[in-house]
């Protein structure tokens, strides 16, 4: 079962790295995924999962990676490899056909999603949302924009807690969440609707609190304890930004 928080505390070099460096690295991986051939996509995904293991977050990252990517990857291979009509469809058994080019395309799409998912999971598993927010503030990002970027991670715990509270309340009032898939689906619907309405109600309250605290009174916020940053990390970020620009230019011009 997924824990309430994706972030796993630790002392690895990736945990200690500045969140801006890690997010730049993440964006670089995302852009690079559009240039790599299928085998390389899967190999790099595996390397990222191994980095997760070395950083002490491997169990959590791999478990979520399998849970999220497996259904999607299977669906992509079935759809592109066996369902979508292509000129090179070959019979396998009875009505079942497959396409080699379809499977190659599925490998490309699946590998790309796999790589983006693995690197995103590694990023959120080693980056505390509050530290990301501090790093963005220290880099003098507009408070509204930095909160917009970090708030989904900050609110994850709260929504998980709220979902659990609603589920507990429903079960202790007799709702059975076991049984047939239809019954489970009904239980899920009864959980999602109040979660959504309470989230909308919370949004207004949260907005009032932020306004009352003068959240956007100044163009940027002062940070008392910004996350550690080094000259090497700044150099790395700029290098990765230039590399991403070159990759983008290559993709556009080729």
């Amino acid at each position: 079962m997924l824990n309430s928080s994706i972030y796993c505390p630790g002392e690895s070099s990736l945990h200690r790295a500045n969140p801006l460096t890690k997010s730049t690295g993440l964006f670089t991986v995302v852009v690079t995924s559009f240039l790599l051939p299928p085998p390389a996509l899967w190999v790099v995904s595996a390397i990222i999962l191994l980095i997760g293991l070395a950083c002490g977050v491997g169990g959590s990252v791999i478990w979520r990676y399998v849970l999220l990517s497996l259904p999607f990857t299977l669906a992509v291979f079935v759809f592109h490899g066996a369902i979508l009509p292509r000129s090179d469809m070959q019979p396998v058994l009875g009505w079942l056909h497959y396409s080699l080019t379809g499977l190659e395309h599925a490998s490309l799409v699946g590998g790309r999603i796999s790589l983006i998912l693995a690197s995103s999971l590694l990023f959120v598993s080693t980056t505390a949302p509050a530290t990301l927010l501090r790093a963005l503030d220290a880099a003098r990002w507009p408070p509204g924009l930095s909160f917009l970027l970090a708030s989904p991670l900050l609110l994850l715990d709260q929504f998980t807690g709220r979902a659990r509270a609603i589920s507990d309340a429903q079960q202790t009032r007799g709702l059975s969440v076991d049984g047939s898939p239809w019954r489970r689906l009904q239980a899920l619907r009864m959980l999602l609707v109040p979660l959504l309405t309470s989230a909308l109600a919370d949004a207004q309250e949260r907005s009032h609190v932020l306004t009352a605290r003068g959240f956007r009174a100044l163009p940027y916020r002062t940070v008392i304890d910004p996350p550690a940053d080094t000259r090497f990390q700044r150099f790395l970020r700029w290098s990765l930004a230039v590399f991403m620009a070159m990759e983008t230019a290559f993709m556009v011009l080729r």
């Binding site: 709220r162 509270a165 609603i166 507990d168 309340a169 429903q170 079960q171 202790t172 009032r173 007799g174 709702l175 059975s176 969440v177 009864m190 959980l191 609707v193 109040p194 309405t197 309470s198």
Partner: peptide, 30 residues
């Protein structure tokens, strides 16, 4: 839990966090 609910009723701490129906009537009828 749903079977125990036929014997024991619970009013949780901060119950206002745990209301889930769209109308007062539906909440009580649940």
């Amino acid at each position: 839990i749903s079977e125990i609910a036929a014997h024991i009723g619970t009013v949780f701490q901060s119950p206002e966090q745990q209301l889930f129906a769209g109308r007062v009537e539906e909440e009580v009828a649940f």
